[in-house]
Computed example of a mutant assay.
Amino acid sequence: MNDRRLATLRLLSLVGALFTALVIMAGAFTRLLDAGLGCPDWPGCYGALVVPDESSALLHSPDAPLDASKAWMEMIHRYLAGCLGVMVMALLVLAWPRRRKPGFPWRLMLMLFAALMVQGAFGAYTVTLKLWPQVVTLHLLGGLTVMTLFIWLHLRLRRVARGEAALAARPLGALMGVATMLLVLQLALGGWTSSNYAGIACQGFPTCNSQWVPDTDWGEGFHLTQTVGPNYLHGALHAEARTTIHLAHRLGALALTLALALVVIRRWHRREMRPWLLTLAGATALQVALGIANVLLWLPLGLALLHTAGAVLLVFSFTLVAWKLRHSRQAVKGRQRQTRGGWLHA
């Protein structure tokens, strides 16, 4: 593979990561505008590739009146997701000649393609199952997974361009493992909170509805076998169940913040890691502040959208810290081996 093609792959992977973040934000904006069912079918809108006029929409789906602004928001989100699929296909085509080369991340590209296909299925089911919270939550997690794979692919391609060997698969330690699990759990709780419209179920902070221990219903709040079929726009759970979900999201935020703070403290002695750790700490503090502000200000549209952006930034920064820890560890070991070898040959 010539240098120009490899440079194109690196650029595409970076653009893909940033573009995925844009698609996630467009999806969040669609959800916040209650436009998730702006088009009652998939992949078209009232049977068309563009939003039709009111009479055509009425003929196609008489039980789903057309709201043109919401329909266009939903279709723009789909168009953007389609562009993302084209990017991944372009990556595969450009990388095909190199697929058998040692150290080339071909399997990672195939994982990215598979993740995007699954994400497309979640997008379809989000509409056909009428915003079923389980699917909406998985759709959010899928988008963040695609973004993470793009980031990891870009970093791998940078190593290939520098002629460096692929990183050996080494665990990053128990603390990073716990932090990873808590991050995934908190992202899932955020999606569950949003999809069940529980963002302001707890009013006030740090108390919830002026209570430290509010009335809750954990069984109903996390009843993962909800009936498929009802329209879940605006949610279908009672107040105590939504309070439970919101409270769980707050507790998850506390646990994740403590875990990430420990990661920063434990790794701070490594000077080469400090810029990345500061980025992670800043992203964590920003996300916590946005969460609190959303509660106190009753979930205004702009702040709610920024909270999703904060989650994207947190995943970005955490992925970079994980990569740098892994890369730095190998680099240090390599230097140590070279030093020992130098003494032996002296």
Rank of each mutant, 00 (worst) to 15 (best):
L237E: 03
G120L: 12
L301A: 14
T227H: 11
A309K: 02
R156M: 10
H223D: 11
S13N: 10
A174F: 06
R10P: 08
F222V: 09
G302V: 12
T279R: 02
A198Q: 02
A81R: 03
A283S: 10
A26K: 11
G38I: 13
M117S: 09
L80P: 09
R250V: 10
A28H: 05
N2I: 14
G342H: 15
V315M: 07
G199C: 03
L313Y: 02
Q186T: 13
V127L: 06
L129K: 05
Y232K: 04
V86C: 06
A346G: 15
S210W: 11
L260R: 02
L189G: 00
L14S: 06
A28G: 15
W152K: 07
R270T: 11
R5Y: 13
A179T: 11
N209V: 11
A124F: 09
L112S: 04
H249N: 14
L301H: 15
P230E: 15
R270Y: 11
S69M: 14
G38N: 12
G123D: 10
W323P: 01
D53S: 04
A124K: 11
L84N: 02
R242C: 04
W298I: 08
I245P: 01
L305A: 14
A169T: 14
L187A: 09
V184P: 00
G173C: 06
N231D: 15
P300E: 07
S61Q: 08
E272G: 08
M181W: 07
T257I: 08
L92Q: 06
R267I: 11
L18F: 12
D217M: 05
A261H: 04
V50I: 15
K70D: 11
E164G: 03
N294D: 14
D41T: 12
I265F: 08
R156Q: 15
S210Q: 13
W192D: 02
L155S: 05
P65V: 09
W72T: 12
V86M: 03
L91F: 10
W72Q: 14
A114R: 03
L290S: 07
L108V: 10
T180L: 02
H238W: 13
A198G: 07
G36C: 05
L140F: 08
L140H: 01
V315D: 01
W96H: 14
L131N: 03
Y125C: 10
L141K: 05
G190C: 09
L325H: 04
I292V: 15
C39S: 09
A7N: 14
R270I: 13
A346I: 13
L306Q: 06
G47N: 01
A114Y: 07
P105A: 08
W152S: 05
